[in-house]
Design a protein around this nucleic acid. Structure first.
Lengths: 361, 361
DNA sequence: TTGTAAGCGTTATCAA
DNA sequence: TTGATAACGCTTACAA
């Protein structure tokens, strides 16, 4: 295969190499990875005994077990996960599906989950659903034959047909990022409706009455808007404008949303941005346009960006801990998969929301 | 299994459910996913013909092919990846190994890579090497039997023995995050040495002469320090203190590193932090301790945090595009795996570094 | 506690 | 262009 390069302008890094002291007589590694049969032969037992020694050590006599484990160590044997999954109908893969792979919050949760399950011998596989039911469907269909040990979604499965498909998998499922009364299985969520209410309460308490909302139109965006509108109405404030933004990948999208908001021509004194990047983009764009914040315009965001508090002005924000969310999801999964678990770990959890007042409201 | 919950304090979100219009006569889904044999029987061909129709359509007559694809569609057939991998010795999994799953830069690169490979029918699996050779070894060993289609590392494999193991896998490998002259296979990197040089040049040009360095002691940290020290010496500046921080998970670690730096008792007028979070933590801690920045202390960081420019003061930073890095890695991988590729895509790439002057130097 | 036999669902190989 | 046969490496079910 041709190798083209475009290196000219850059200096190479020094070569970082370490050569271990290889024992003199160390045999060259065989071209093929060792199979369970190789281990069995060397240990003088049958393959199934090796399998037991590795998966259910208690079912093998200590003497045999030690001998087997020694051979395993010496050969560098590693069970073939495909063969294992094919025969047993269960793999050591934990599948995670993210609404948007570029969102920092989702990735944080997924990677926190990966950390936990990895420590228990599972491997995490990432996929993207793109807030789309059809992508969600094909993701779920691929799970039917992948036979993962468990699934984690950064969201709630809404489509009844997809819920049915997932139930049929008969594996632990963690939904997250919302707090519905009827999760498929396990849940690490927070109340999006409460987040909206909290936002309205805060803005009204600060004296704002003409409110605008920015967020996705479906799912959690709708929930946040519902709570926001409900509480605003209760408190006598008005939602004068609602901007729907379906895909948010960078602050640019927030800047654009703010300009769209202005085009509506309505006057408002505060915006609730149901998403970090929207909030950040709005802040930058509004300041650039000469708005004084919060005097001309107040800004409240929702998200988990720990840098919101480091900006100048510090963004007022409603926040939750996406890292903890992923960790808890991972813990629920490994607990459920652990046959020795006593099953007392909560299978549903609602994380707290925190309103962190900054300098923008 | 017992279900404990601790829900009391929170409001449930409304149920978000959608039920599709299911066609009248739609049969209930069978409990077991369809196998290739089911499709074959319904299409009146043998299993291997179905397999060919799906993988190498050109080898099947158009008429047969269409009939098969119709049945595939109707049954929702999805090839079992484990059986396929077991038999063929190659799976559709792309493995990605990250030095630290909590690092935003690494996750960004990995998820960008996931995005690309996913569009070509591969699934990305994430693992963590924790900057440790032994973790790296076990990661690589697991690959021997996982038989992924390709591997992506957010780093360079340093240990000669691990390099040998990887070569034996005989699959596309992408290393990244550095620019050594002898990559294992493909490379999307940048020069860490140049980054260090750039840092020293900038600081000296701004009039700083007593410099401090913060970063990891091994690998890329060492390269950045080498370039930094080399250029500083050339320009007549002195490196008065070097702080080694092996694990950086949050700004807290940066705060701590700064305090450690002070304990040394040496006086310095500028710090180069080889990592975003170290820089941010140092900034926060130094300001809290009453240091005026950059008058009392200048600060230059290395990383890819687009928020560095939004802080107040804006952090001076040497930056690269980790998102592009992951995307390019993904593109290299799918190109190499595509039998129709003409092999003209560069297999080695050096990304540009950009010095973005902020208000801290 | 250990072993035998069979099969998970696919694809390589060879034959027609 | 299509098919028969066997095998990938493991674990279930059953037997000793």
């Amino acid at each position: 295969m041709a190798k083209a390069t475009d290196l000219t302008a850059h200096t190479h890094d020094a070569v970082l190499r370490l050569s271990p002291d290889r024992p003199e007589g160390a045999a060259a590694r065989p071209a093929r990875p060792p199979r369970i049969e190789d281990v069995a032969r060397q240990a003088g037992v049958s393959p199934i005994t090796v399998s037991r020694a590795l998966r259910t050590p208690d079912m093998v006599s200590p003497k045999t077990r030690d001998r087997i484990l020694q051979v395993v160590e010496a050969t560098g044997y590693w069970s073939n996960p495909h063969a294992s999954a094919l025969r047993s109908g269960r793999s050591s893969i934990v599948a995670a599906f993210v609404s948007n792979l570029l969102s920092q919050q989702y990735s944080q949760a997924v990677l926190a989950c990966a950390r936990v399950v990895e420590q228990h011998g599972y491997q995490l596989m990432v996929g993207q659903t793109s807030y789309s039911y059809s992508r969600e469907l094909s993701a779920i269909q691929s799970l039917r034959s992948l036979r993962p040990a468990a699934v984690f979604f950064t969201g709630v499965i809404e489509l009844e047909e997809n819920r049915d498909l997932l139930r049929e998998l008969d594996i632990p499922i963690v939904e997250s990022w919302a707090y519905p009364p009827d999760p498929l299985d396990m849940l690490v969520g927070f109340s999006n409706t409460d987040a909206g209410r909290l936002a309205a309460s805060h803005l009204v308490a600060r004296g704002y009455r003409r409110l605008a909302f920015m967020g996705r139109s479906g799912g959690r965006g709708a929930l946040r808007l519902a709570g926001f509108a409900e509480r605003a109405a209760e408190l006598g404030a008005e939602i004068v404008e609602t901007i729907r933004v379906e895909q948010v990948d960078s602050v640019i999208d927030g800047r654009r949303a703010y300009r769209t908001l202005l085009e509506g021509g309505r006057s408002f004194d505060a915006i609730f941005c149901a998403n970090d990047l929207l909030g950040l983009g709005t802040l930058l764009e509004a300041r650039q346009q000469g708005r004084r914040i919060p005097d001309d315009l107040a800004l409240l965001t929702f998200g988990d960006n720990d840098l919101a508090g480091e900006l100048s002005p510090r963004l007022s924000t409603i926040s939750f801990d996406s890292n903890a969310m992923g960790t808890r999801a991972g813990e629920m999964i490994v607990d459920r998969l652990d046959p020795r678990s006593d099953g007392t770990l909560a299978s549903s959890l609602c994380l707290d929301l925190e309103l962190i007042p900054g300098e923008t409201t």
